[in-house]
């Protein structure tokens, strides 16, 4: 565990000088939230109206949380990195290092994104408080649970993106698959809670990554209850294990292929 922490730390340090750039990326995040505030403002005729069980403020908080989590993974860049490692043969050098490639990639990548994420948490919350003048009622244990669930969401998402990146072992360019994955999450998960979709769709989505990477933590944040907590955390843990196993299996398969063809 310590070595991953070290990888994480060194990436974090070397990225501090990009602080200014981080601020600029934040602007992007801010504007996205801004667009959604405008959109929901337009759609809700009055703030107390409930649509599919959510008030306007809840909808905006929902988007703030899912955007933070989605941004924390920064999947587009991460996927490209993995698939370049695979295609460029970098992965062959990583193979005989005393750490797992998957662990290394995730640790080093999250090290890069953490500062940005922390800042977007601060800015996102400041924006929510400033414009909505409202904060969901949460007890201390609830806050801890939301944080845990969010971290799990980021980890699951990172593992799934790793998996997609590793598909480059099989097909030449796995980026198009990532686009589809990211659009699925963005359109179906980040923007609307599952309740917005009709019966059967909502049922399917409950078993999709959307539930564990977006809906879960955001739902707990805007509408906390212990019964949903159990359900969400349990699904997240199961997903985490499955995603890790999938990555590991694909990696092993890819490495074998690499050994045969000689990279």
């Amino acid at each position: 565990m310590k070595k991953y922490l070290h990888i994480y730390k060194s990436e974090l340090m070397s990225n501090l000088q990009y602080m200014l750039n981080i601020v600029f990326r934040l602007v992007n995040f801010l504007l996205l939230i801004f667009i959604f505030m405008n959109l929901w403002d337009y759609i809700y005729d009055n703030p107390n109206e409930l649509i599919n069980g959510y008030s306007k403020n809840q909808m905006i908080w929902y988007v703030i949380i899912t955007e933070i989590i989605w941004g924390a993974t920064d999947g587009r860049r991460y996927c490209r990195k993995i698939s370049e490692d695979v295609k460029g043969g970098n992965i062959a050098y990583m193979m005989n290092k005393p750490y797992s490639y998957i662990g290394y990639s995730i640790a080093s990548h999250l090290g890069e994104t953490t500062i940005k994420t922390l800042i977007s948490v601060i800015v996102g919350f400041a924006m929510g408080l400033f414009f909505l003048k409202d904060f969901p009622v949460l007890t201390l244990p609830a806050i801890v649970i939301v944080i845990i669930s969010s971290i799990l969401a980021v980890l699951i998402n990172s593992l799934l993106v790793t998996f997609i990146g590793l598909i480059s072992f099989i097909i030449e360019d796995s980026n198009p698959i990532f686009w589809l994955y990211s659009k699925m999450i963005l359109v179906l998960g980040v923007l609307f809670p599952i309740e917005y979709f009709p019966g059967i769709f909502a049922q399917i989505m409950k078993y999709s990554p959307i539930y564990v990477t977006c809906y879960g933590p955001a739902k707990l944040f805007v509408d906390f209850s212990y019964s949903t907590t159990v359900e969400i955390l349990l699904s997240q843990i199961i997903y985490l294990c499955i995603a890790w196993l999938m990555c590991h299996a694909l990696y092993m398969k890819g490495v074998r292929k690499l050994n045969v063809t000689g990279g």
Binding site: L39, I43, I171, D173, N175, P176, I177, W179, L180, K183, M184, V187, L188, L191, F192, Y196, F197
Partner: peptide, 21 residues
């Protein structure tokens, strides 16, 4: 072909967002 067609699908996915809205 993947690149071109997946981009079309990718864009098309936003139609869902607007159907919901």
């Amino acid at each position: 072909i993947m690149n071109v067609s997946f981009m079309i699908l990718n864009n098309a996915s936003f139609i869902i967002q607007w159907i919901v809205i």
